[in-house]
Write a protein that binds this DNA or RNA. Structure first.
Lengths: 239, 239
DNA sequence: CGGTAAGTTGACGTGCGTCAAGTCTCGTGG
DNA sequence: CCACGAGACTTGACGCACGTCAACTTACCG
């Protein structure tokens, strides 16, 4: 159930059997969400954190005027709102971008972990800090990169993150998301995203069709995006 | 020394005398940095976290081509890189935007806190999660708000955060930063920031001159920015 | 009083937004 | 099997917010 999450944690540091059991013990149930459903709304107070098992989840914030910005994409194995454990209410909403299966981790059991298992607590803290590092990289994209670089960077990031949990080939992966939703990640309009995708296709860098990403020239794509995976913290370093 | 940091924490929850002492005990020394000096460079491994006592610090990332994006501004009382405790190396650099006084908190003593003081550990975790919430709001600004809204939003955010640590009046505060650095926060060029500031001035919303912010019409400014301080988590909620 | 960095302004260019009219895809019901 | 509708995608024409370039002013400091 939480195997993919453990894969990610163990990339960083050793997780003992006791820690693994404690983590498994936080899960109280499993829920299925249909595509395009809001899973949690900004401002709600929380009793659980959402661990994504299957599908794609986006964190987003609405603006007056009806537009919205997706601030983070979650792949299977990610906690979508582990930060909700200390924040108690969310400043953003959660959206199922595709049909999703999620496990729900009880905050009271997470609290017990923080009382008894300092090392595992540091690992959970670490997870939320990596999320923040991803936010920073998205700020750089939104603030300083051109539309095509932004798109290329996002595709590179998702390949790297999906690969960790066994969901990506070196040059392809499933990304069940519409161009309009991509636009909400990239701070662009759907029309311009469409043009950027055509551009990437015509340059023979990448194709994105019917929820499938095919990287035709991984090296050139990473060069265009200035992609450096260091900010994902995928190397071992004991806590 | 760490009074301003305690002010922020105590806005959220009670800090016991033992916890306060432990926090004070993490500080090993105090360092002064001149303006425009890089305090820590992306990629370096860390033994300390930086608590800002006086001045302004920015987190930034460099891009090929020489431009850079500032992803977060720190005011006195903030840890600029508490996340460095679990990340072990930074994905961004730290820049003293004005002359700064910082206290350095030893990671080994922070580690002891995580072993002995679960509640204080949750408070520190909370702090880094608020930083992430601020990153999200900046993503919204960079992705979806116009230049003038972005600027207005940043000025509102900094007023709220400075006020918490006693460094802002309801309508004014010191912000020792150049227009070029503002541009690096806002994802704009210095030239355009200059025009936006003139626009804000001519609309009689806000003046920014010689490092001083004067909000001439706070209500209208917040309306323009769509500023809602919920994402700063300034209300009490026990952990 | 001269040098340097910060701020200001105007003329002009362009990347992305807007608007509008398609086409393509696919699920549903006749 | 086809008709239909709805949503996703595509494309072209045009507009504008912000970028670029360059000249100038102001503030500050030695």
């Amino acid at each position: 159930m939480i195997e993919r999450h453990l894969l990610k944690l163990r990339l960083r540091d050793v997780i003992s059997a006791e820690e693994e059991a404690a983590l498994r013990g936080t899960i109280v149930d499993t829920v299925v969400h249909a595509a395009n459903r809001t899973i949690a709304r900004a401002g709600e107070s929380l009793q659980h954190s959402t661990l994504l098992l299957e599908g794609l989840i986006g964190r987003y914030k609405d603006l007056r005027g009806g537009s919205r910005q997706i601030t983070h994409l979650h792949v299977p194995g990610d906690f979508a709102d582990l930060h909700g454990f200390t924040l108690k209410r969310l400043d953003h909403s959660l959206l199922a971008l595709s049909p999703c299966v999620v496990a729900r981790a009880s905050h009271s059991r997470l609290q017990e972990i923080t009382e008894r298992l300092p090392h595992l607590t540091r690992m959970m803290w670490f997870s939320t800090n990596v999320d923040a590092a991803i936010h920073r990289e998205w700020e750089v994209s939104l603030g300083r990169r051109s539309a095509i670089q932004r798109a290329a960077h996002l595709f590179c990031e998702l390949q790297a993150r999906m690969a960790v949990v066994g969901l990506a080939e070196p040059d392809s992966y499933a990304l069940p998301i519409s161009q309009a939703e991509l636009a909400e990640c990239l701070g662009l309009t759907p029309v311009h995203v469409n043009r950027v995708l055509r551009d990437l296709r015509e340059r023979e860098l990448l194709e994105f069709r019917s929820g499938q990403v095919l990287m035709r020239d991984v090296q050139a794509l990473k060069r265009l995006a200035e992609f450096d995976p260091d900010y994902l913290y995928l190397q071992p370093l004991p806590l």
